[in-house]
């Protein structure tokens, strides 16, 4: 009884504070913390370690935004969300941004009223099967039992793929990656399907990864990226350009090792200067400090470093850059210029 009344009083105070502030950027600054929606646990993308510290590819984006806005990479409140709750959490303002490998689709952008600020990982839905089945193409999967990790566009892609190839399947929807893996390994399903990055990450944790193969078919485009609410363009710009800053930093060779040197004084490359705030007023235009991008990049390095550290070939997950290489290296990662 007591605590509730007391909480009620806090709520009243919260209402007062909430009405006073306007944009998300001001909210975040006033709060001194960024509320960032992540998954409940997907190795490499977002998961708390044994000490409760969140780590991963998506987490790094959250931390970069927090560093850009607040100058403190640890000023992030990570809000675990499920596929069911993520959109309402964002729409209702519980979180300021969502970085939860969410696919950019038409209806999410237009109907659900969200703004995808960019793509931080180009993915596609793939299949994993045990080698002993001798399956070499997804088109051979007629009548197979398929474990699907629910909560993203996987169910729809799967249904479309099997329908367009006129073959049958038996879906087993599963909530978490760990449970899907358990069932797949026990042979309760023949095939496990989710984003190809997730499959690689899952296979990496198997006792005998060599006994399983990823089928060549990638049946969907899954551009994953952070998103914010429609209508708050100022905040959308902050998140978009923080992501772009990470990408540009890789392109221009700015790394966590050399950033302190480069930012100490204006150098020879004007774009680096503009990016790091030694020249021009880009930070001010965003409503941030001049060294916003420097702070963001200093947290865990540029896009390439973040990739390598969390999901790259040196990690157990071992993903190759592939589509996610810089455009200069034949990939799709491309940032508009800082000008």
């Amino acid at each position: 009884m007591k605590k509730s009344v007391f909480f009620g009083a806090l709520t009243v105070a919260g209402v007062a504070a909430g009405v006073a502030a306007a944009g998300t950027l001001d909210d975040v600054k006033a709060r001194g913390k960024l509320n960032c929606g992540v998954t409940t646990g997907l190795v490499g993308f977002a998961a708390p370690d044994a000490n409760g510290e969140w780590n991963g590819f998506d987490v790094a984006v959250c931390r970069a935004v927090a560093a850009a806005v607040l100058g403190d990479a640890s000023a992030v409140e990570f809000v675990p969300t499920t596929g069911k709750t993520r959109f309402t959490a964002l729409a209702s303002g519980e979180i300021d941004m969502l970085a939860r490998n969410t696919t950019w689709t038409f209806s999410r952008d237009v109907d659900l009223k969200f703004t995808f600020v960019g793509v931080n990982y180009y993915d596609g839905q793939g299949f994993m099967v045990p080698k002993e089945l001798g399956v070499s193409s997804a088109k051979d999967l007629d009548g197979a039992t398929v474990c699907i990790q629910t909560g993203t566009t996987t169910e729809l892609n799967l249904a479309d793929f099997f329908r367009s190839n006129n073959i049958n399947y038996e879906p087993v929807p599963i909530e978490t990656n760990a449970e899907a893996q358990q069932q797949y390994l026990a042979g309760a399903c023949d095939v496990y399907t989710t984003d190809a990055s997730g499959l690689a990450a899952t296979r990496a944790t198997f006792e005998a990864p060599g006994d399983h193969v990823l089928l060549p078919e990638i049946i969907s485009k899954e551009p994953l990226g952070p998103l914010v609410r429609h209508g708050d363009n100022e905040w959308g710009d902050v998140v978009r350009w923080t992501l772009n800053a990470l990408i540009t930093a890789e392109e221009l060779g700015v790394t966590s090792a050399n950033i302190a040197d480069m930012a100490s004084a204006a150098g020879g490359n004007p774009e680096i200067n503009r990016l790091l705030g030694t020249e021009g007023t880009l930070g001010e235009m965003l409503g941030l400090s001049a060294d916003w991008a420097k702070n963001a990049i200093a947290v865990s390095g540029n896009y390439g470093e973040i990739f390598e550290k969390n999901i790259g070939e040196s990690t157990p997950i071992g993903l190759a850059r592939g589509l996610n290489a810089q455009w200069t290296d034949g990939g799709l990662i491309y940032s508009p210029p800082f000008r």
């Binding site: 729809l156 249904a159 879906p171 087993v172």
Partner: peptide, 13 residues
């Protein structure tokens, strides 16, 4: 648009 494994009535995606 999604499949269901166990159905007691006619259902397709």
């Amino acid at each position: 648009g999604y499949g269901i494994a166990q159905t007691m009535v006619e259902y397709t995606s």
